[in-house]
Design a protein around this nucleic acid. Structure first.
Lengths: 242, 242
DNA sequence: CGCGATTTGTACGTATGTATT
DNA sequence: TAATACATACGTACAAATCGC
């Protein structure tokens, strides 16, 4: 299941990344110059720049014109406090998660739902409530709206596993991109019933809008997180004004 | 103060963006092919690809090999619910914000602070508490730790305006990149005293680690947000595995 | 099902612009 | 001012995924 990198810029990306992690360039705080890397990896400058660009997206380095590529320090100590908790991305891959479907229905998007979900009026959707457990602790209440057009013949059994896997593997539809909005809301009765909120009366809500293959919005999901288990990380590389 | 785009790929980026917004390509859900855009803009394919790449980072489009560049629909309706609330990025540019400095001191990072801030032991820092008002409403409590090395001779007056502007303009030091972590925490006494929390007993906390010019971590800040005014947006373009 | 035609992805090369030292 | 180093831009070639015939 490992994607073996037969792509040059990815190879270079990984090598540079591990060099940075192991402190190889730490004294100088700079990467070798692009031309030095071209010599070292026997590739074009474009390819080196491509790899550096990826590192920059990850928050590892930052290029400065006329100066060089600067390594951003203290990565480990910043990652550390996150380690124990759970990121968002891993949700669908990690094994220690179990899911319990507590609601399953097929409904039609009316006006008020359309405002909330951004799905088009009269769209048929599967509407689910799912509890996500981590080590048998309820962590997240997922409220899903999947366009029935896309998630054809969805069943509770499938929802218990991965809807995404079903859509991508079985239905052969690709999920392209997603937009996430994070807010904090008062805990609803549903939240209180299913999540172990303890002394908290709020939940962290991640609203996800996902698109398929053809650019159509097909999913709106509210992932309602127990606050003490919620972490969201963004390494923003202070984008230049465009 | 407007950066006039004398850069080709930025021009193309803006043109494509406004075309998408005005629904010019909406029927097909696709951008013109790269080669068509090359003809139209009389530029190289690289330049077109560069512009498309930026659009993709913004969550406007998604390229699919062998197929084309797909436009992601429903942008406005998703942006809409955010509109009223305030994003994070705008903090330093919007005019309606005012700041009140309620604590100002110079301290040295000890072991426990070092764990929290990721700043090196024995670093001298300016420690601030600042209330951010929007329309005279307290929205955010900022708890700052600025390395005194970088933010030399910081004063309360400067802190009342923009520390970043001071560092960049007056001290001529560039702020390169930042890493943000979002969590939800119980409101502290400080939060309750300064923010108008109403019925909420939680705050949304954005922890920011910022780097300078030379790659050194120079700032740790906790921006403690009133939950009802907090929104965080991420348009993640489902990055390919690398 | 296979086979081109189309379209994006990767990679190389070269030249010139611009910020930093 | 000159050298260095990243940024932009042009061009070319081939690989790989998709789609229609």
């Amino acid at each position: 299941m490992l994607t073996l990198p037969n792509v040059k810029f990815k190879d270079i990306y990984h090598i540079l990344k591990s060099n940075i992690d192991s402190g190889k360039y730490d004294n100088s705080m700079m990467l070798p110059t692009e031309m030095e890397l071209v010599d070292k990896f026997k590739c074009s400058r474009n390819t080196v720049r491509r790899a550096i660009n990826e590192l920059s997206k990850d928050g590892y380095v930052k290029s400065v014109k006329g100066k060089g590529v600067i390594i951003l320090e203290s990565r480990e100590s910043i990652e550390l406090p996150i380690g124990n908790l759970l990121g968002l991305q891993e949700l669908h891959t990690k094994k220690k998660f179990t899911t319990s479907v507590v609601h399953f229905s097929k409904i039609t998007i009316d006006e008020s739902l359309s405002r909330i979900t951004a799905l088009k009026l009269d769209t048929e959707v599967y509407h689910l409530h799912r509890i996500r457990f981590y080590d048998n602790e309820p962590i997240i209440l997922d409220v899903n709206y999947f366009s029935a057009d896309v998630a054809k013949d969805l069943t509770i059994e499938i929802a218990q596993n991965s809807v995404y896997e079903y859509i991508e593997k079985d239905l052969n539809t690709k999920i392209l991109a997603s937009k996430k909005i994070i807010v904090v809301e008062h805990a609803t009765e549903l939240d209180k019933r299913f999540l172990d909120l303890g002394t908290y009366d709020c939940v962290a809500v991640v609203k996800t809008y996902a698109y398929t293959d053809s650019g159509k919005l097909f999913e709106y999901t509210e992932s309602r997180h127990r606050p003490d288990k919620f972490v969201f990380v963004e390494s923003s590389s202070l984008r230049k004004n465009i």
